[in-house]
């Protein structure tokens, strides 16, 4: 059986595919969110050093991971759009940016709430905090560049260049802990070593990450659908859609 991979590269067919996928991913997001929050609040033990305040990691860590992951995904799709001139890829990239920026902001905000009881300060100029802040700036730069350009084709390509240039920053974020080695605690989770935290804490965090992931997919699909409608508003299939013929 051969699959026609390019069928859904057309915005028109992707629009309907995305519409069909949204309910499933929404359900997954809600399930993971409920399970993750339950584990986070009721199953995970109280930390012997940090007390109850550590529970913010169930939001903080997934948000920080997603903000970095989404940047890479955004740069990937933007790069694909630049290289192969596929309109849909660039639309997805622009749809990812606001969600990524939201997660970066959330990571900084929850980090401040965690830092106040733990370190006694809302903000420190630690390498990881700073690079998360830079990541937030990169999202803002990507979005404001695209917003400043009226021609969507030029906006897509210009955004792709700045996203690919900014991707250099993501490894710097990752390795900054080893490079500068300052106040932020080293990574507690790694693939090569056994985790240094209780299983319930770890599973809660991972399930919350899945919830954040599914949530991102839902929001990005919705936003991509809106971008498709906005850009294709003059095409025949959108006007048919308006008349209710295709639903």
């Amino acid at each position: 059986m051969t699959i026609n991979w390019f069928k859904y590269a057309s915005p028109a067919s992707f629009y309907f595919l995305a519409g069909r996928m949204i309910p499933y991913f929404s359900a997954l997001a809600i399930i993971f969110l409920v399970v993750g929050l339950y584990i986070g609040f009721f199953e995970a033990p109280t930390d012997f050093q940090q007390g109850e305040a550590y529970r913010i990691i169930f939001i903080h860590v997934p948000a920080a991971w997603m903000s970095m992951f989404l940047y890479v995904v955004m740069a990937f799709w933007a790069g694909i759009g630049l290289a192969f001139n596929t309109r849909l890829s660039s639309m997805v990239a622009s749809a990812i940016a606001p969600t990524g920026a939201m997660f970066a902001f959330l990571a900084l905000w929850t980090g401040a709430w965690w830092g106040k009881p733990m370190w006694g300060t809302w903000w420190v100029w630690d390498a990881r905090l700073t690079s998360e802040l830079i990541l937030f700036f990169l999202y803002i730069g990507f979005m404001s560049l695209q917003a400043a350009i009226d021609d969507p084709k030029r906006a897509d390509k210009a955004g792709a260049v700045i996203a690919l240039v900014g991707v250099v920053n993501v490894p710097i974020i990752y390795f900054s802990v080893q490079w500068w080695n300052t106040l932020h605690q080293g990574a507690s989770v790694s693939l090569v070593q056994s985790p240094k935290m209780a299983t319930a804490m770890l599973s809660g965090m991972l399930i919350m990450t899945l919830a954040a992931w599914m949530y991102s997919i839902v929001i990005i699909l919705i936003r991509t659908r809106l971008i498709i409608l906005g850009r294709e508003r003059h095409t025949a299939w959108v006007s048919e859609l308006k008349e209710g013929a295709l639903e």
Binding site: T130, I134, F137, L138, I140, G141, S144, L145, A148, I149, A158, V161, I162, V165, G166, V168, N169, I172
Partner: peptide, 29 residues
Amino acid sequence: IGAIGAALTLGLRGGGVLVSILVLPLYIP
């Protein structure tokens, strides 16, 4: 690095402020 930002914002309205948002984060390292 600035050349990339200057090229991307060429002829845009508000290019001067925009180039600072694009380029300054990349200057940080």
